[in-house]
Design a protein around this nucleic acid. Structure first.
Lengths: 238, 238
DNA sequence: TGTACATCAGTGAACGCGCGTTCACTGATGTAC
DNA sequence: TGTACATCAGTGAACGCGCGTTCACTGATGTAC
């Protein structure tokens, strides 16, 4: 920064930072590798010592950004938990973190969400989905959610908070500030959680959540997985 | 098509069709005006007699596609309704139409949703949001939803179905076929509707749904709007 | 501690490419009389 | 019904541009002896 050095030393991260800033400023596609390099103060070709292509950089950024979201959710949930606190509050806090994050940097959120199955090699930890699963498990443990409603509930909850986040990020819905977003998130998630608890006559082939990615990671940590056959199972790829 | 004509006659629509096909095949940004023109069999410059720029074409396509979704939801809801049918079924049908649509042409869905406030001039009728509002009103009328839960419920429901649709469209969640999608949609929407009905102690400043677009249109058709002050109101722009 | 050298991480010029858009044009169509 | 002419909707050549990527290079770094 201060002295002009031939070797940057942290170019990989610096490029990711620059690219993230460019996404914030000019949207998911409104910038070039050359601009990111220029912003870091490096020649365009330098990037190729760290990324195979522009796409590779974008994918790496997307994964990094998604992992950050997972961290924010996880710590928000942890902070909300405590004795005497409403059992649903952890999930609500995670959801608020999710929605606020999308509201703060809509274009970055679009990048993280909007590119399909791209995080091929990268392990994202903690994945937002993982945080939701952890919170649901906690709700079942504390008795705030029926165990029968648990399978597949992760995708139901995820869909709810994801929808609010993306409607706001994409400008299809607008709110007056983050407090309003929190209120909306809370109302939505409490409605879903309450609705799941009230569920009667679960469908015969209840969807079961599992994914290659999740399994690969959780099998290493514990092996409490109940391997019921899944017929119409939602899956989180990679 | 058969005879080579100098004047195409339907070039505007033909270009929109070609662009939509290209979006399906190559994603939201993976195609050019020139490709669309070539596909129609017309020179690249011909498009400028119908669209001011490539962006204008994209915006027009996005609006057209969103209106089609609204139509599909609306007719699905109408078809589901009937005497003796579960009151929630209309909304579930609309939601299934929404989710299936996103699943059928994910890239097209991303186009319709992912470009922020772009439908500036165009009136989209019926907007998916309008269909949701209509179904909610019906639920209140039939007594299946508390009137106190009605304000803002449209955004809660919309968020839920939108989240499922976009998670699937963006490949963050996968399902084995459209029946599985229907099942997920049904579970999600029923949970939200049930949860909304069970709501106790609504927040003091309940969010109220209103938007310039909606008001402009609905004021023309009826004027039953209850104009309560909205403090933290979600809004649908344009 | 000093030197030789392999490796790493930069440079900068150059490439070919396809893009959106413009412009002067021309062929077809429709309307006035 | 026939002719003159304005208007509409095409053509196709050309433009300048910025892009991703390559390549031979060079300066800095770290390690072996």
């Amino acid at each position: 920064m201060s002295k002009r050095q031939y070797h940057h030393g942290e170019l990989r991260n610096a490029l990711l930072d620059a690219a993230e800033a460019l996404v914030r400023e000019h949207g998911v596609v409104g910038w070039s590798l050359r601009e990111a390099s220029a912003r870091v103060g490096v020649s365009p070709s330098a990037a190729y010592h760290h990324f195979a292509s522009r796409d590779a950089l974008v994918n790496a950024l997307s994964a990094r950004v998604l992992a950050r979201l997972g961290e924010r959710m996880s710590s928000a949930a942890a902070q909300a938990a405590g004795p005497g606190v409403d059992a649903q509050q952890g999930m609500v806090a995670a959801g608020c973190a999710y929605v606020r994050w999308a509201l703060e940097a809509p274009a970055v959120a679009r990048l993280a969400f909007g590119f399909g199955t791209q995080h091929a090699e990268v392990v994202i930890a903690p994945h937002p989905h993982d945080v939701i699963e952890a919170e649901l498990d906690r709700l079942v443990t504390t008795g705030a959610l029926n165990a029968t409603a648990r399978p597949g509930a992760d995708f139901t909850i995820w869909a709810a908070m994801h929808g609010l986040a993306t409607l706001l990020a994409d400008g299809l819905m607008t709110l007056d500030g983050p407090e309003a977003a929190d209120q909306q998130t809370q109302r939505l998630l409490r409605a879903v959680l309450t609705g799941l608890t009230q569920e009667t006559a679960p469908p015969q082939h209840r969807p079961t959540a599992h994914s290659a990615h999740t399994e690969r990671r959780t099998r290493r940590q514990d092996n409490s997985t109940t391997d019921e056959p899944s017929v119409t199972a939602p899956t989180r790829p990679q």
